[in-house]
Amino acid sequence: MADNGRDERWRLDTLSMLPEPRADEERAARTRARCLEVLARQRAGGQGWRGRVRHWIPALEAAGVAALALFYLGGAVRHALTLLGR
């Protein structure tokens, strides 16, 4: 019985070692080319409004951080001037 169990496990382990059938390379290259063409078309088309928004997100983030830094810096300078004025 134990032998049967071992035997069964050994054979089921074979699943992960099955040979990997290969697709036709020429067709695979054609498929890749078609996909890249679609990607390029999407890129050229600006990827729609979501794509355009995503494109500007890093710039908007940087602008936001810069504005916040300026705001706090301005506050600090104003505070320092007030203290000096006293």
Binding site: R32, C35, L39, Q42, R43, G51, R54, H55
Partner: peptide, 22 residues
């Protein structure tokens, strides 16, 4: 991939094309 990076597509394509075909 979303930004249309061809190299990113190739990474995914090479990683999965044989597995998907199998």
């Amino acid at each position: 991939l979303k930004s249309g990076d061809e190299r990113a597509f190739d990474v995914v394509y090479e990683a999965y094309r044989h597995r998907l075909f199998a």
